[in-house]
């Protein structure tokens, strides 16, 4: 097997792993979410906007919250993919965002956090919103 063929196989395996990445664990994600709690809450706006109603919401669209111009114009709609990209490096994903945070480098931690946010969005705390 030549080197190129091995490289292609490796790339294919990496793509397959990416497509079938293990789903996040919401219990572990709840612990990751504690990092967000300087600025965010599920049910109400703080320095950052609320996270209830996050999935399917257009970025920069919580009524009354003072977003950066960059976030308002980002045209992002929050889902697992856009959240993963944003959380990995917010300032790169949306240059000019007021979320001055380096991001969560670990893919597994991001998946856990997104799983928690998805679960929390189905909780009673968000249901009352």
């Amino acid at each position: 097997m030549n080197a190129l063929w091995r490289l292609l196989l490796l790339a294919g395996a990496a793509l397959a792993f990416s497509a079938n990445a293990a789903p996040g664990d919401p219990d572990r994600g709840k612990l990751v979410y504690e990092r967000c709690q300087a600025c965010h809450a599920l049910a109400y706006d703080r320095t950052g906007p609320r996270h209830c109603g996050l999935f399917g919401r257009r970025a920069g669209s919580v009524p009354g919250f003072a977003y950066s111009e960059a976030m308002r114009r980002s045209k992002l709609v929050w889902n697992a993919q856009t959240l993963d990209r944003f959380l990995s490096n917010p300032l790169k994903a949306v240059p000019g965002t007021s979320m001055g945070y380096a991001g969560i480098a670990d893919r597994g931690e991001r998946a856990d956090l997104i799983a928690y946010l998805r679960q929390a969005n189905g909780s009673a705390a968000c249901g009352r919103q």
Partner: peptide
């Protein structure tokens, strides 16, 4: 304590940027 812990994480995320 929850707020303080969150603040630690927020500053930790701000330092490198």
């Amino acid at each position: 304590a929850t707020l303080e812990k969150g603040a630690v994480s927020a500053y930790l995320g701000a330092v490198p940027v």
